[in-house]
Amino acid sequence: MPEATKYQDPATIQRVLHTGRSIAIVGLSANTLRASHFVGYYAQRHGYQIIPVNPREEQVLGEESFNSLTAVGDTVDIVNVFRDPAAVPAIAKEAVAVGAKALWLQFGVISDEGAAIAADAGLDVIMDRCLKVEHARYIGRMHWLGLNTEVVTARRPVRR
């Protein structure tokens, strides 16, 4: 199985989205036009606790920004990464150290080494997938935009 699809398992993605409550976003920008801000805004709107990790910001989306994952202190369920792939192995080690349950690498953030560090420590790993898109696919309203969710079901969804 290619590395990328190994870390794109639909069941894992849904479990992480449904069980996680706090998301540390590494590289979260205060610039509202950046992809990281789109994801942070969306996740906060859908009730997740957002923890910005970015030494260049003081506060993002009304939350204090931390210099590193290890500086956070609070429980981190999902570590969501918007960084250069080269930075991922170090982030993965920190994610393991703070007891995170999942490492989620965004579109283009591809690091087999980082993914392996987290997976070997028992974390769920998702790679080259967008947290906002996957949430919208299974829980949100991606189907309102004519995008192919690949969800095919005759079950009546729970209203949301």
């Binding site: 639909p10 299974y138 829980i139 690949e150 969800v151 969804p157 729970v158 949301r160």
Partner: peptide, 9 residues
């Protein structure tokens, strides 16, 4: 936030 009613693939 909704956790019930998963739309499964």
């Amino acid at each position: 936030r909704h956790v019930a009613g998963m739309m499964e693939l």
